[in-house]
Simulated assay, not measured.
Amino acid sequence: MPFTLATWNINSIRLREGLVKRLLTEEAPDILCLQECKSPVEKMPLATFRALGYGHVVARGQKGYNGVAILSKLPLEDAGDMDFAALGHARHVAARLENGVTIHNVYVPAGGDVPDRMVNEKFGQKLDFVSEMRDWFSDNRPDRAILVGDLNIAPREDDVWSHKQLLNVVSHTPVEVDHLGQAQEAGGWVDVTRADIPAGKLYSWWSYRARDWDAADKGRRLDHIWASSDIAGAAHGSRILRAVRGWEQPSDHAPVLASFDL
């Protein structure tokens, strides 16, 4: 059952309903995982997406913050959620396809502005979230699994516009990169995007603060698609839809896609 999967931090599913509709119409991925939906599930515009063929939905919502949703053309069942770091946030949801593949949709906390947990509680929460995710997947070693989402960490030097200038900036600090690396190793996850595109600068997020984000191109690769080692070889066709960042009233993230022949 070959399928294409996309992940996108939409930054409000209700505000950007039209952009989601456009993506589903123009790109037609079989599965779309959304983060930062900022809406209770009952207020998400799911009827719009069902009309486009995405009749299967597994989601966790929250008023005004967080929120994760999996929209699918393919039948899937709810496979639960985890409250990593006990934050009480809607930041993880899982769904299982009929072929036994489990999809984990994750929205890691951004971590605030100061990379010091002693003075910034949010940074500590971010590290704890990733640590608990590491421990959970170590104890529940994934097989036939895909993990996607806004992980809010750019791990490689070529995942940011300037490694040197961002070493002390939240999302690329050594401690965050180390935590993410441990989580990836503990689960035996393969970074599908970088397996497909092993070299070169690669970004999925550009700040709203830049007057001309495209020309400045000060991006970071914060959005990821991982696969368990037993199915990683079936992944191909990875791409980041940079042009979507330039749509009207866009999210500051661009969708990331990969296909799987399973």
Rank of each mutant, 00 (worst) to 15 (best):
D78F: 01
E42V: 01
A154G: 13
D150R: 00
W226P: 05
A258F: 02
V244I: 13
L127Y: 10
H236F: 14
E98H: 01
E185S: 09
G67V: 08
D217L: 04
H172G: 08
K43S: 11
L241K: 09
E121Y: 01
D158L: 15
E17P: 01
R211I: 12
P2A: 09
R211K: 15
E27K: 11
A79G: 00
W205A: 11
Y54A: 05
V169S: 15
A145R: 05
S171W: 08
N11S: 03
S229I: 00
D212R: 07
A90I: 06
R209I: 11
H163R: 14
T7I: 08
K218G: 02
H172P: 05
M82A: 09
W8C: 10
Q249S: 08
L46F: 04
E176R: 10
N152I: 09
R91H: 11
Y65D: 02
S39F: 00
A69C: 14
K122H: 06
V160N: 05
I197L: 15
L97T: 07
L5T: 08
A90Y: 06
A183L: 04
L222A: 12
V20E: 06
P250S: 08
H172A: 12
G88E: 03
S204P: 06
D230N: 14
Y65K: 07
T7F: 10
E36Q: 08
A85M: 10
V170C: 15
N105M: 10
A186D: 12
D83T: 04
N99S: 10
M82S: 13
L76G: 08
R144T: 07
A243T: 01
K126D: 02
G64V: 08
G200T: 02
E26M: 11
V190E: 15
L76H: 04
D191I: 13
G124R: 01
V256Q: 05
